[in-house]
Design a protein around this nucleic acid. Structure first.
Lengths: 321, 321
DNA sequence: GGACCCCCTGCTCATCTGAGCAAGATTCCA
DNA sequence: TGGAATCTTGCTCAGATGAGCAGGGGGTCC
């Protein structure tokens, strides 16, 4: 146990020095006088205290990011870019999601080159990204849906609203994918897919210069269950087969592979390969329930840019508390 | 709600600057280049971030103290000295108690002038202080008990052991008060008190050059209940009368006044006045259950030096989270 | 016991940072 | 709109800090 660890006298001194330096903001010279040390010794003690991790500096702000985690994430995974928002002082998962969506909106706004065509998925997270975007975030961006929309219940308009909102605020137009996300029969899906209007949208989606999408966890709270495409039982069955979550409506396992080829065949939208090969594929994922999907997505290269929260990032790095 | 607060652009900039400064440790000049600002502006943003409380610096170490809280406590209460241990990263109340006891041992060791006679009470906390003291912490200190000891059950030896241990490690002798803490009848108490041996100890106690004592909360977990001097019901009755805890066996209310004069008359040991007038009266109090007593003790001048944990200190200052 | 090596100490010097100041910008009234 | 008051900006300069280096003390290995 920690308590029994021997604390050498330099360690204690370094703590005393740190108290005076950080809490009382004395100069190293003053501290030297107080503790009967040279100021150089004090400097070294402080460096030691920092190096030992006794000094914890946190930036407590809803817009704070964790640059060090971002860097480690980039290095460990080969992501082009990583945006990690701090979870310091966050009470709820909603707050975390909101912060992450905000960060995604910021990233999108600053993205260069500005995408001509932006392919997006739908869901609560994407919706919130739309809300956080500022009017004029881009000057003429075409937004195209990359997977079938919500259409089976009262929340029918959400997916469309998200696309329209993002497009509108970016002074551009939205192209909707007029199809359900998952069809009951393969033939139906193929029929819709080959419809000229739908095919045109899919072509546009395939040619998008950037993608922005989220992911869903594999449980009864999934948006696909909520929208009526799948039952809780069907999702449970997918979990048994190894599903950790879905991305653009397609369920993947922890290696990023399709879990159920039959189901996937009936799912309408761009292929995962499309995302894997895209230069700018931005995944926005937040909340503790999505650690597993996030890991799968990043691990299998399904996104090139990840916007997420600190805890999820640490989970991907295998450093969760 | 916080979320709706407008975040002006300088605030955001100051957060970006802080991230680069504290997480990536860039120089203010570098940050200036990155954010297209002069280095002076960066310095000001950083200062602003600090002033707004966005930068939280914590010293995470079992021996860390909170000097700023100590200072505020001294200023607000007129204590001669205050020692406040950090409760950062503390899981249990035991851990807190242990840290506080350690700090008390440190304080005692560094106390100048070294007390010739040290009056002590007994209890779990004092016992632990004894454990943390190092062999040779003083060179010939006489330890004298200032209130009647535990003697009604199996833990009979604890009080004596504490005194002996503290004295022994300080190369001195212990003088025990050979009496129960509370007597059933006033006459018995008076009789014991006037016994030559007991009177001699009490005289010694009254003349002590420093006092070290703890406090007990007023509930069924009190050491006095545990030792069999009082029943849980009696304590409950005292609480109804306004008791917040006990100090050297005497129950006080939130103003530091004796709650039950009859009971107090039957309690053997030095008077509270004695502590109030002592130049060096060190109270060691830790744990959330003792906030109320701590407040009463400090508020009514029953100690001149307080050793406690951060949460208790904040409670005394009226700033509890 | 002596030679050697390594780490720690205290130093110089260059860089970084904060205080204070004057000029310019902005706001706020009349 | 004018003018005063206030805030902001970029600066100088002095103080604070970190990097790197030479010397000394202590430990170690023959």
């Amino acid at each position: 146990m920690e308590r029994t660890r021997v604390i050498d006298s330099d360690e204690l001194l370094s703590i005393r020095a740190a108290e005076l330096y950080y809490e009382e903001n004395r100069t190293q010279d003053e501290i030297g006088t107080l503790l009967r040390l040279t100021r150089w010794k004090v400097g070294r003690l402080l460096a030691q205290a920092k190096a030992s991790g006794f000094i914890r500096i946190e930036i407590v702000h809803p817009r704070a990011r964790r640059l060090s985690v971002e860097r480690r994430l980039r290095e460990a995974t080969g992501l082009t870019d990583a945006i990690v928002v701090s979870s310091a002082g966050v009470a709820s998962d909603e707050e975390l999601q909101s912060r992450t969506a905000q960060a995604a909106a910021d990233y999108l706004t600053g993205l260069r080159p500005v995408p001509r065509t932006l392919g997006i998925s739908w869901g609560r997270t994407l919706h919130e990204v739309g809300l956080h975007l500022k009017q004029g975030w881009a000057h003429g961006v075409n937004v195209v849906q990359i997977n079938g929309g919500v259409s089976l219940n009262r929340r029918a308009g959400t997916a469309a609203a998200t696309a329209v909102s993002i497009a509108h605020k970016g002074a551009g137009a939205a192209t909707l994918l007029p199809s359900p996300a998952i069809l009951e029969r393969l033939e139906t899906k193929q029929a819709i897919e080959s419809d000229r209007a739908v095919a045109a949208v899919l072509n546009l989606a395939t040619a998008a210069s950037a993608y922005l999408f989220s992911a869903g966890q594999a449980d009864e709270n999934s948006a696909l269950v909520d929208s009526g495409y799948l039952t809780a039982e069907q999702v449970a069955e997918l979990v048994r087969k190894g599903a950790v979550g879905d991305i653009v409506g397609r369920y993947i396992d922890s290696n990023g592979n399709i879990v159920d080829p039959d189901l996937d065949g009936r799912t309408l939208g761009i292929q995962l390969e499309q995302l894997r090969q895209a230069k700018t594929a931005i995944a926005v994922i937040a909340g503790s329930s999505k650690h597993a999907v996030a890991r799968a997505i990043v691990g299998s290269g399904l996104c090139s840019i990840l916007v997420t929260d600190e805890d999820t990032a640490l989970a991907i790095l295998g450093e969760e508390a």
